[in-house]
Structures are given as structure tokens and as C-alpha cells.
């Protein structure tokens, strides 16, 4: 059979494939986070303005990136689920939501702990922080929809619509720091004229981010495996109740 995107869209194939790759994903996540922690504290220098407080960046920034990465996965999977009815697409969307919510939460908490010494306050209704808080609420609303609607097929459709509508928040978060001149600093890594962070802080940041990303993929695969089995349990229960 020729390889296509459908190759891994089959739940049985996904179960086999994920069982094989998961140990490697966890190993890469552990290595990235372990080496990243070492770099964060023993290699990265204190910032010339912010001193050691800049180390909070190594939690805050990767978490913030993954909060949007997770939502990106949810939106793409939701579109695929609605249009192509892929058997795995809504499993992926549902499984990504709690992971994205956790990283949004961590981005906000680490941001607050960085804000206190640098801005003088844990929280400010700044454009970036407010739109990120909205992202957290969208994640929670999405998860609540799945929890409330019992039929997985119906829940998948309703939740997919919410995920796609909520995607308008992503560019708002991205450009909030340019559109509104408020407290949160503008982009300093992904910008057209190149990063403005010194390379001694930038490369440890990428190592932590890579570790966090593999952690995200690992948890996503575990949750997708659990979700596939949950649906199998549901089918078996209905078969046995009917028999």
C-alpha cells in the first residue's frame, strides 16, 4: 500500500506506531528538559538588565509557544475532522486540549512570577496577558463541551466548531504586542529582522523548547491511545448491553 496521510489515520495502525515511537519521544523529552535545566541555571548568563530573573524565560517562553502549538493542532485536527471525517482527527483534537491548557496555565503563572520583580505586579490587563487568559478559557470551554456531550460523534462536531471559531484569538495573541503598546514586550525571537535576544540566552531557550515539544508529543500520544481505547470500551459496552 502506498504511503499517504491515511496510513496513520487508522486507529489500529496508530496504536502500533505510537507504541514503537513513544519510548524515543520520552527519551528526547527527558534529554531536552534535563539538558535544558542544566543550561538554564549553569550555562546561561544573567541578563545585563534583568539579572537572574531572566531564567524564568526558560519556563515562560516555551510554555507560551506550546500553548499556541497545542491550539494549532486542535484547529487543524478539527478542520480535518469536519471535512474529511478522519477517524483519528477528533481524537487528536480532544487529546491536545488539556495539554495546551496546561501550558497556557504555566505561561501565565511563570509570566506572573516574572512580572512581579520586573513590572512590579503579578498581573496586568495588558493585551498579551488578557488574550492569553482568553486562550485558557477557550481551552476550558472546549474541554467542557467534550465532557457535557455524551455521544462522541456529536461532541466532536460541536467542539470542532468552537475550536475553529476560537482560532481568531491566535493572531490576536501574536500581534497584540504590536497592535497595542502596553506592558508586555514585543517579539524578540521570531521577528523578521532576526532575534534580539543574545545567543547565549537563545540557544538554551531552544533546547528547553525542544524538550517541552517532545514532552507535548509524548503526552499527546498517550492521551490519544487512551481515547481510542475509551471508544472501544464504549462500543464493547453497547454491544454487550444489546446482546
Amino acid at each position: 500500500m502506498a504511503w499517504s496521510i491515511h496510513t496513520y489515520a487508522n486507529p489500529t495502525r496508530f496504536m502500533n506506531f505510537s507504541a514503537i515511537v513513544l519510548p524515543y519521544v520520552w527519551a528526547l523529552a527527558g534529554a531536552g528538559i534535563g539538558i535544558g535545566l542544566y543550561l538554564s541555571f549553569f550555562v546561561a548568563p544573567p541578563d545585563y538588565q534583568q539579572g537572574d530573573s531572566v531564567r524564568i524565560m526558560f519556563v515562560h517562553v516555551p510554555s507560551a509557544w506550546l500553548s499556541q502549538f497545542g491550539y494549532g493542532i486542535m484547529v487543524v485536527s478539527s478542520i480535518v475532522a469536519l471535512i474529511f471525517r478522519h477517524p483519528l482527527a477528533d481524537v487528536a483534537a480532544k487529546s491536545a486540549a488539556p495539554i495546551g491548557a496546561v501550558f497556557t496555565f504555566l505561561a501565565l503563572v511563570a509570566g506572573g512570577l516574572w512580572g512581579k520583580p520586573m513590572w512590579g505586579t503579578y498581573w496586568v490587563w495588558d493585551a498579551r496577558t488578557t488574550s492569553t487568559l482568553v486562550l485558557l478559557f477557550i481551552y476550558l470551554g472546549y474541554m467542557a463541551l467534550w465532557a457535557m456531550i455524551e455521544d462522541p460523534n456529536r461532541a466532536a462536531r460541536v467542539a470542532a466548531v468552537l475550536a475553529i471559531v476560537g482560532a481568531v484569538n491566535l493572531p490576536i495573541i501574536r500581534f497584540s504586542v504590536d497592535w497595542w503598546n502596553t506592558l508586555h514586550q514585543p517579539a524578540s525571537v521570531f521577528r523578521l529582522d532576526g532575534p534580539t535576544i543574545h545567543s547565549s540566552l537563545l540557544w538554551p531557550l531552544f533546547v528547553v523548547a525542544l524538550g517541552f515539544t517532545f514532552f507535548f508529543i509524548g503526552v499527546l500520544m498517550v492521551r490519544m491511545r487512551a481515547e481510542i481505547l475509551r471508544r472501544k470500551v464504549r462500543t464493547l459496552q453497547m454491544q454487550q448491553a444489546a446482546a
Binding site: D52, I56, P98, L113
Partner: peptide, 24 residues
């Protein structure tokens, strides 16, 4: 002590480790 920023830095890292471990 982390130049006086210790409480902020350590709590941000510890919360992240605890929450990520809990999720996994």
C-alpha cells in the same frame, strides 16, 4: 538566592515540573 530573585525563579520552575509531571 539568584541575585534576590530566588523565590520567583524557583517557584516558576517547581510549579512547571509539578504540573507537567501531574499531567503525564
Amino acid at each position: 538566592n539568584m541575585g534576590g530573585y530566588g523565590p520567583y525563579i524557583w517557584s516558576s520552575f517547581l510549579i512547571a515540573i509539578a504540573v507537567m509531571t501531574g499531567l503525564a
